[in-house]
């Protein structure tokens, strides 16, 4: 022991003063196993008895927990009210926790304090096969290749390689074909909005009169006739609009001449960053906040980006009123809605 100890001290010293004392030694000596230290429970019968009682108590906790599960199941049914469901779930969960944690902790405590803890060394056998086995395997492979005659029969060799090389196409073509649908960016360039489409309330679909939109109001808008569309959820995802009325004096700019109506402005609700619904409208500052990455748009200034990662304003929907006084779209959006990367493919 003492020689080992002094050796390790030398090594430590060498490692610490490497620059001064020269390079590390070529090989480290195997330090061997630490000496076995008996546990308190190995030497003191009192401690062993105490540990036994503790393990038994932990198993007892588990038993109580299991009884608790059954009691909770019988005595506290979920019932009809939220409060009774919560009580039922809480008691079932807590009792099940006790019944499992009791078994787990008891097993670990038992193994650590009472089961034998003598170190056992099990040498690892070499992974490399013996030379005879390796030579045998190579001989078998070579024999098989010669038997198939692949070196002589060039046609078969070519046919086999062709078949193997073509096989992945059967998997790849359908997969890539599926992706192809998303490459049709024309689908993002146009929405349901067109000249004369009425602006209606989400979700009721009732049309909105300009006089209903008082200053400071925010309306969540879908196009009229949305629910009659075959793929109405997809159409809704593209066409949703937030409409607010500002004091016309506050309106600094808009994206097109005459696109607003008497202070009423309508913007796409799909963020130009990555397409989250932008709908957190702050009435006093006229700022519209995207909840995903905090892009902020100034509604009074043509939805200019005032903060955050979005790189272009939300597209504005040109609106006017029809002869019955209902708000209608003048046209579709004039640019693709949603994330800006579609713009590159224009």
């Amino acid at each position: 022991m003492s020689t080992e100890h002094s050796q390790s001290t030398e090594l430590t010293a060498a490692a610490t003063h490497r620059d001064v004392a020269g390079p590390l030694p070529e090989r480290f000596e195997n330090p061997g196993l630490e000496p076995h230290r008996p546990r308190l429970t190995d030497e003191d019968p009192g401690a062993a008895r105490r540990a036994t009682r503790q393990v038994a108590a932990l198993f007892g906790v588990s038993v109580l927990g299991t009884i608790g599960v059954i009691v909770a199941h019988v005595a506290f049914p979920p019932g009809d009210s939220v409060a009774s469901m919560r009580t039922s779930n809480l008691l079932l969960g807590a009792a099940l926790f006790l019944s499992l944690i009791g078994i787990g902790t008891a097993a670990v405590h038992w193994a650590k304090t009472l089961m034998s803890d003598h170190e056992v060394v099990e040498a690892r056998h070499p992974q490399k096969s013996s030379p005879e086995v390796r030579e045998g395997a190579i001989a078998v492979l070579r024999e098989g290749a010669e038997d198939s005659g692949i070196a002589r029969r060039g046609v078969l060799k070519g046919a086999m390689i062709s078949a193997l090389a073509l096989f992945p196409l059967g998997l790849a073509v359908p997969l890539i074909g599926e992706v192809g649908g998303d490459w049709n960016v024309g689908a993002f360039r146009h929405t349901m909005w067109k000249r004369g489409t009425r602006l209606t309330r989400d979700p009721s679909g009732t049309p909105i009169k300009a006089e209903d939109v008082t200053v400071g109001s925010a309306f969540h808008v879908i196009p009229d006739g949305l629910r009659e569309q075959e793929h109405w959820i997809e159409e809704k995802a593209k066409a949703v609009v937030l409409m607010v009325r500002l004091d016309p004096a506050d309106l600094k700019s808009e994206q097109g001449e005459g696109w607003s109506y008497d202070g009423i402005v309508a913007f796409s609700k799909i963020c130009t960053h990555v397409g989250c619904p932008v709908a957190l409208y702050e009435q006093q500052t006229h700022h519209l906040l995207c909840p995903c990455h905090q892009s902020t748009f100034d509604i009074a200034d043509g939805a200019r980006v005032v903060f955050g990662p979005a790189s272009r304003p939300l597209p504005q929907l040109p609106i006017t009123v029809d002869d019955e006084g209902y708000l209608v779209a003048q046209s579709d959006f004039h640019e693709p809605i949603g994330p800006s990367y579609w713009e590159r493919l224009k």
């Binding site: 919560r86 008082t214 925010a218």
Partner: peptide, 29 residues
């Protein structure tokens, strides 16, 4: 923002109140 009676009718406002009152009972989980 303002949600006037033309946007969310008085009946609909009452529906929203009913929904929020239900949330006061907490989570069943």
């Amino acid at each position: 923002p303002v949600f006037n009676d033309a946007n969310i009718t008085p009946e609909e406002k009452q529906d929203i109140i009913a929904f929020l009152e239900e949330q006061k009972q907490g989570s069943p989980g």
